[in-house]
């Protein structure tokens, strides 16, 4: 992230250390992850300890400290999704794309993540692919949704 962009994000949040979480969110929105160099620049620009920035970035599950792939597939692991078969869905995608949850395929095509409930419990198991919600999923439907990505 270039300096001007970073500064504009910091300014948008009034340079207030209390808004660090929101600042990190905005950085991630731009970059899709939190690059080390950007966090170091952020700490220096806001005159904050890097240790504090790193602590926050690693505490919250929303942040990724590794680059994400072109596509993002997030499987909801809420209780309702769990009892309706979400773990098997994750197993299935892991096998199909040869990637473990929390990681990205070697070709950087797909990142597979899990989330602890998105509040669409009546539609479980639920999977979000590139921002689009897909309810009542099973292995077959999953394959259809992910087919275009697989064939890319």
């Amino acid at each position: 992230m270039d300096d001007a962009k970073l500064k504009s994000i910091i300014e948008k949040h009034d340079r207030d250390p209390a808004n660090l979480l929101a600042i990190l969110m905005d950085i991630q929105k731009e970059e899709r992850w939190l690059p080390k160099e950007t966090l170091k620049a952020l700490a220096a620009e806001m005159n904050l300890p890097l240790a504090r920035v790193y602590a926050l970035a690693t505490f919250f599950a929303a942040f990724s400290l590794k680059p994400r792939g072109k596509h993002l597939c997030t499987v909801c692991m809420g209780t309702a999704c769990h009892v309706r078969g979400a773990p098997r869905l994750v197993d299935h995608i892991q096998r199909e794309f040869d990637v473990l949850a929390g990681n990205t395929t070697a070709d950087m095509k797909l990142t597979l993540e899990t989330v602890n409930c998105v509040g669409a419990c009546a539609l479980g198991p639920l999977v979000i692919v590139d921002g689009e919600y897909h309810g009542n999923m099973n292995a077959g439907k999953m394959d259809r949704v992910l087919k275009p990505i697989k064939q890319e």
């Binding site: 300890p49 890097l50 240790a51 504090r52 920035v53 790193y54 602590a55 690693t58 505490f59």
Partner: peptide, 25 residues
């Protein structure tokens, strides 16, 4: 000096320098 802090949470919590690299502060 604020050189170190906890990282991660829960069972992944750890006490390390940022990125587990030399703590510059």
């Amino acid at each position: 000096a604020n050189a170190i802090a906890f990282s991660g949470r829960g069972s992944h919590k750890d006490m390390v320098a940022p990125y587990d690299e030399a703590a510059e502060a």
